[in-house]
Design a protein around this nucleic acid. Structure first.
Length: 131
DNA sequence: GAATTGACGGGGC
DNA sequence: AGCCCCGCCAATT
């Protein structure tokens, strides 16, 4: 079972969560991992998205998943251009304001229906430095 | 089966 | 702001 067939369901779960990210919003790898739950972590999310098939990439907005720094972890400028096309503003450091674009998490009903958990409450305005 | 790597995160200094 | 260390799970070597 080196093909890890049972883990495919975990990947599908990750894809389902990523597909819930609305247009113009972003989520960190850790956030997606927390929503998926089950001991999933950011690295698994990264692997799942990296193993994403081109056809599947059309349905899964993988570009809306960024790292905790609010930056792009992928190579190339493809992801950044996709986010900019959604209206996100990148700073000179190539990062976006997480406090502004961060996804608050899936709907409570959706999370429970998919056996996932919502995002823990987060303090707003911590590092809110508007410009 | 151990060691390493990876589209990571958080805490501490 | 930076830097370092640890944990976490999966895939690869």
């Amino acid at each position: 079972m080196s093909a890890s067939p049972g883990d495919t369901e975990l990947y599908e779960r990750i894809y389902q969560v990523v597909m819930q990210i609305p247009h113009g919003a972003v989520a960190t790898y850790g956030d997606v991992a927390l929503i998926v739950g089950g001991g999933c972590d950011g690295r698994i999310v990264g692997h799942a998205l990296s193993e994403l098939s081109p056809e599947r990439a059309l349905a899964v907005p993988w570009q809306r998943v960024i790292n905790r720094e609010g930056g792009i972890s992928t190579a190339g400028l493809a992801q950044r251009q996709m986010l900019e096309a959604e209206g996100l503003i990148f700073s000179t450091d190539g990062r976006v304001s997480l406090v502004r674009y961060r996804w608050h998490g899936p709907d409570a009903a959706w999370a429970e229906a998919h056996g996932c958990r919502t995002l823990p409450p987060r303090e707003e305005g911590e590092q809110l430095s508007l410009f």
